[in-house]
Write a protein that binds this DNA or RNA. Structure first.
Length: 417
DNA sequence: TCTGGGGTCCTAGGACCC
DNA sequence: TCTGGGGTCCTAGGACCC
């Protein structure tokens, strides 16, 4: 039996732990620079405030309803997460920590799972102050559904989804678009084909599913039918990509400020690399202007660089990242390499990049991904630095490389201290 | 519809090889 | 330069997740 434990309104709950007087009152957490909503207590949800909503649009609503607004405090959330997870670990050593606020656990060897789960939930609440919900079933996808039901409809926060009748009833009432792995595109396609519930999806022909939703969709459907396709991943796998990115809260007009950020973000990525004992081969840097400033022209820059030898050394990585930033502002380099950008930082130190739309299709190929992603998701002027992980070939060498690099870095850091 | 900041996996098509 | 077939590796881009 797989249990899926999930913290309710996690960030908002964390803030409440230290402000118990906010129990029962609306609590909302805003993203970096107080841009948009990233966590809501139930009271805030009831006000109709949506996830991801820009803060400026709901100012009035916040004021009228005396909503308690917090800026993110990821140190706090990470710490609270560790506390919750360590309690869960004591219950079951086979645990996969899936994200900051949720985990899958193997509870198959534990008899009376429902009672156990209820107790576990009470324990987490008592020791950390964080309310959680637990869904139990034989596959991860079903456990997710069980969790949904537990959170929404069960006073004790626990639901066991087991037995053909109960599963059928649950699936018939569960909207297909709420399934784990069905996003906007897939939902649209399914609706067009008159598939509205999880149950209807589970009845579909395998070949049709594979053709329309590919192998991922097929796995999802098999899990709905009770066949395990996503086994519990107990060991924490090393990240294949590491990324540090941030929006500035204000406009940036100096290259020095960009250099500062790029350098800091590079070190940050390097530290993450060392923490998981890996090295990187490639690095990409990109920047773009504020896409939400309608009157301004939009520009962006993007560079991929490759290290001669894979590394996790902060200095090497920072240097390379700064080289990338320089390249972005160097015309000759751009068209040869990443296919974009440039011109000068004009007289007033304004950032001036070639306009995206003027770059022809072939040249901008590399940029499409960055552009789409950022245009959709990021606010304000942004510097993002990504370090790409290993492909298969490199992975083989990784074990030999990383200890030696790690040692070197440790020495280096000690010297610096 | 969208004023964060992270990640993952899959697939098609191009580059390259014999 | 278009006359064969088979294969692998790589990566951009799409879709999804929290």
């Amino acid at each position: 039996m797989i249990a899926r434990a999930d913290c309710n309104n996690f960030y908002a709950s964390c803030e409440r732990v230290f402000r118990p007087e906010l129990e029962g009152k609306p609590v909302l957490v805003l993203s970096n620079n107080d841009g948009c909503v990233i966590a809501r207590s139930n009271e805030v949800k009831a006000l109709g405030i949506k996830m991801g909503e820009p803060a400026f649009k709901i100012k009035e609503l916040i004021r009228k309803n005396k909503v308690n607004v917090f800026s993110t405090n990821f140190m706090l959330y990470g710490d609270m997460s560790n506390r919750v997870m360590s309690i869960l670990k004591e219950e079951s050593s086979s645990i996969e920590i899936y994200s900051i606020d949720e985990a899958f656990m193997d509870m198959s060897e534990i008899g009376g799972v429902e009672e156990k789960a209820i107790l576990l939930r009470a324990q987490v609440k008592q020791w950390t102050g964080i309310p959680i919900s637990i869904g139990l079933a034989h596959t991860k996808v079903l456990a997710k559904i069980a969790n949904h039901i537990a959170k929404k409809y069960k006073k004790n926060g626990v639901f066991v989804l087991e037995g053909t009748d109960l599963i059928e009833r649950a699936l018939k009432f569960f909207p297909v678009e709420d399934l784990w792995g069905i996003g906007r595109q897939s939902a649209k396609l399914l609706h067009k084909n008159n598939i509205k519930t999880a149950w209807q999806l589970a009845q579909c022909d395998d070949r049709w599913i594979k053709r329309n939703l590919n192998i991922t969709g097929l796995k999802l459907v098999k899990e709905l039918r009770g066949e395990i396709c996503y086994p519990l991943g107990v060991v924490q796998a090393a990240k294949k990509n590491i990324c540090t990115s941030r929006s500035f809260g204000k406009e940036v007009h100096s290259i020095d400020e960009l250099r500062e950020s790029v350098s800091t973000f590079a070190s940050n990525c390097a530290k993450k690399l060392r923490d998981q004992n890996t090295v990187c081969k490639k690095l990409s840097v990109f920047i773009l202007t504020n896409p939400f400033k309608p009157e301004a022209k939009q520009y962006q820059g993007y560079q991929i660089l490759e290290f001669p030898t894979a590394t996790n050394d902060s200095l090497e990585i920072s240097k390379m990242a700064l080289q990338g930033l320089r390249n972005i502002f160097k015309e000759d380099c751009i068209y040869k390499k990443a296919g974009v950008i440039v011109h000068d930082i004009s007289s007033e130190n304004q950032l001036q990049l070639n306009m995206f739309d003027k770059v022809d299709r072939a040249k901008r190929k590399n940029l499409m991904f960055a552009y789409d992603t950022l245009n959709n998701k990021m606010g304000r002027d942004t510097v993002r630095l990504t370090i790409q992980g290993f492909d298969r070939k490199w992975k083989m060498k990784q074990e030999q490389l990383s200890p030696c690099y790690t040692t070197r870095i440790t020495e280096l850091l000690e010297v610096k201290l």
